[in-house]
Simulated assay, not measured.
Amino acid sequence: MISKPEFESKQIVFVLLNEGEKIAFSNDNIIVKDKDGKIRHQSTCYRLFMLCLIGNISITNAVFKAARKFCFLIVLMSSSMKTYEMLGGRMEGNVILRRKQYAYSGLELAKHLLKNKVENSRQLLMAERNKSEDVKLSIARLDEFVTRIRSYTGELSGLLGLEGLSAREYFKCYYRDIEWKGRKPRIKCDFINSTLDIGYTILFNYIDALLNAFGFDTYCGVLHREFYMRKSLVCDLVEPFRSLIDMQVRKSVNLKQCQPEDFTNRNGAFLLKWENNGKYIGFLMQPILQKKVEIFMYVQSYYRAFMKGKKAEEFPVFVVR
């Protein structure tokens, strides 16, 4: 199982692939060659944690063997940066952990994760320099949601309802100075929603890779319960960290790094142009890389708390800064 000192030296690599390019393994290195056979990218397997390949590519058998041997994950993504497969190194056979996952049925961990998410949303609003009355009102309402979540004793569906209401309150306030139609996941009705989707996907893949490194069944969650082919536990542990992407997207819009012209509008959906993928990965990865070790430590602490059967209040908390 990976330790903090080992993880600190690991890399997350994104490769944007052009037509005819191939990926191969040679001398403990992953190599990307263009259609003429020239080396375009090279990474040592000893430092890889996650290799994200965007676009169509030809992969040799040796690459999959290398991923297993050196325990790094290969994430295959479409040109629109939607993940369609994850291959390679995983921590397998952690039977005790998975038995504990399958035996858990309470709501306390779900409340803990959701409370952490809402508190971070509140923190972003608190960081506003000039707080209007609308901002102050939204902060007060988020405080109420935290209190309601903490004391909640009903069914899971009601808890998810509180999550939706708190998110609506937060989003309408946080992006109030930008052209904003409200948060509409996966619909991509404007460039901000589309950018948020891309950022959350990158974050999702990173959390997924970390959970696999500890041997979790990523389909077995505590807030998002079992649903066919949904990685519910990854959805759970993404929640406290969504604020990192929210903060970066607003910053990038204000800095004109993120603009409507970077997208094509196809049947009402804003789709990022291929030539802009590198730029968007660059700025959306910034907060994740800045907090890379902190996120790792969170997942490690979550694993240890789960294995020891600790109370929900003893599980880790991520505080956005």
Rank of each mutant, 00 (worst) to 15 (best):
I2A: 01
F7P: 04
I12N: 09
V13Y: 00
L16G: 09
L17E: 05
N18K: 15
D28S: 13
D34K: 05
K35L: 06
I39Q: 12
Y46Q: 14
M50E: 14
L51N: 02
G55Y: 07
N61K: 10
K65F: 10
C71R: 11
R90C: 12
N94W: 00
Y102W: 12
L109I: 11
K117E: 10
M126V: 11
A127D: 14
S138I: 04
A140D: 10
L142F: 05
T147C: 11
R148H: 08
L156A: 09
L160W: 03
Y170R: 06
F171H: 07
G182K: 10
R183Q: 05
C189G: 14
L196Q: 05
D197T: 03
G199A: 04
G199T: 06
I202H: 05
L203Q: 03
F214E: 04
T218E: 08
C220H: 11
E226N: 09
E226F: 09
F227I: 14
V234Y: 07
C235T: 02
S252Q: 07
Q257S: 02
Q259T: 15
T264V: 12
G268W: 07
K279L: 10
P287Y: 07
I288V: 12
E294C: 09
Q300E: 15
Y302K: 01
K308R: 15
F315L: 07
F318R: 02
V320P: 01
